[in-house]
Design a binder for these strands. Structure first.
Lengths: 192, 192
DNA sequence: CGATTCTTTGAAAACAGTCAATCTGTGTGG
DNA sequence: CCACACAGATTGACTGTTTTCAAAGAATCG
């Protein structure tokens, strides 16, 4: 399972064998069953996780009990709640597994340390974060400007993996529309 | 004008006089007239700017010509289009001044350099970014889950400065609702 | 002061949400 | 292997919200 992370790292940056080993040493394997929590509202997030297999979600539950999904994570994605991890304050979000998953977990403190020790690794993470920033900006944009149908088509076009793998209730919670509306849109699309 | 940035920095981290001078040396003053662009769609963003006075917006124009505002920036805020700045690719966003403004501009390359040279400064920026991440996550959440009226109330509560300073057309573009709807909501609120 | 831009208001139409009922598929236990 | 229960997905009718369009009113700037 560590092998997946190793492959991921060497594909992104060139590091010595030694450095790679040092990085991998900070991670612990963990298996998550479907629906199992990795982080719950009120916890402080002390980790960053790499997804070797499966898929997770980061979401928030509102007063009425509805959840709103901020982000999905699949194989080769990182998952964390940065706000809490940096501020060391309790989070308002949850993370759980959508499928049985295998992840590699690193404590925030260790993660900061290896970033400092291995600048190339730090650079990789900074690049990733700025890319992420772009994605999240795009997401704000589409949430603000698109109709339900347009949101669905955007997803179909840019993240078809989500549509294939994720149950539709969750897709609705990700797009900010009701299950029923999503269902109707799907039907229309299929008829065409 | 550099004084504003200096005050900002020393209030956040403790640095030697020398280090502060080194940082300030990377910034150039620039005045922006109201409506003047700092970044246009298609440009590559090579800078990060500190707002000493005034206010700016980061936004995107869609196919129909409507703009959608991702972010406002006031005094003591940083403004940049990170995605483009990191990837060195043309941006899809615009930045312009909402009021006559005074900003301090630093080239991305210089900025990266001083971050490396002065770790405390880097830490300050990383902290800031994670805080920013939290804000942006909250923004996704409210865009997905709130009605127009709830969005307005949230703004009134958490960012009253925006309501006081920004013309309402732009507030609507920020909340993802039409000007007319915003106008009606304002009226209802005033009557109560 | 005139011109332009921004804001408000009304009425109709489009859109999406809610509720309730039905349908589908999956897995479980008898 | 079947019957049943359960969760998820679909459908229809209705309701409520938001947009759109058009027109009028207010504010701002040169």
């Amino acid at each position: 399972m560590l092998e997946v992370l190793k492959q991921y790292i060497v594909s992104k940056v060139s590091l010595s064998e030694e450095e790679v080993t040092k990085i991998l040493a900070c991670f612990k394997q963990k298996k998550l069953r479907k629906k199992q929590y990795l982080l719950q509202e009120g916890d402080v997030c002390h980790f960053i996780a790499f997804i070797a297999k499966g898929c997770l979600r980061l979401y928030r539950v509102d007063d009425k009990g509805n959840d709103h999904i901020v982000q999905f994570g699949f194989e080769n994605y990182w998952m964390s709640e940065r706000e809490s991890a940096f501020s060391q304050k309790p989070t308002q979000y949850c993370i759980d597994a959508i499928e049985d998953s295998e992840i590699l977990v690193c404590q925030t403190t260790d993660f900061m340390r290896i970033q400092k020790e291995i600048p190339a690794f730090e650079k990789m993470m900074i690049d990733l974060q700025s890319k992420n920033f772009g994605i999240i900006q795009k997401r704000i944009n589409s949430a603000l400007s698109y109709t339900a149908e347009e949101k669905y088509h955007e997803l179909l076009h840019f993240q078809p993996e989500i549509i294939q793998r994720i149950p539709s209730t969750m897709i609705a919670a990700y797009l900010g529309i009701s299950r029923e509306t999503l269902s109707r849109i799907r039907n229309q699309v299929n008829k065409k």
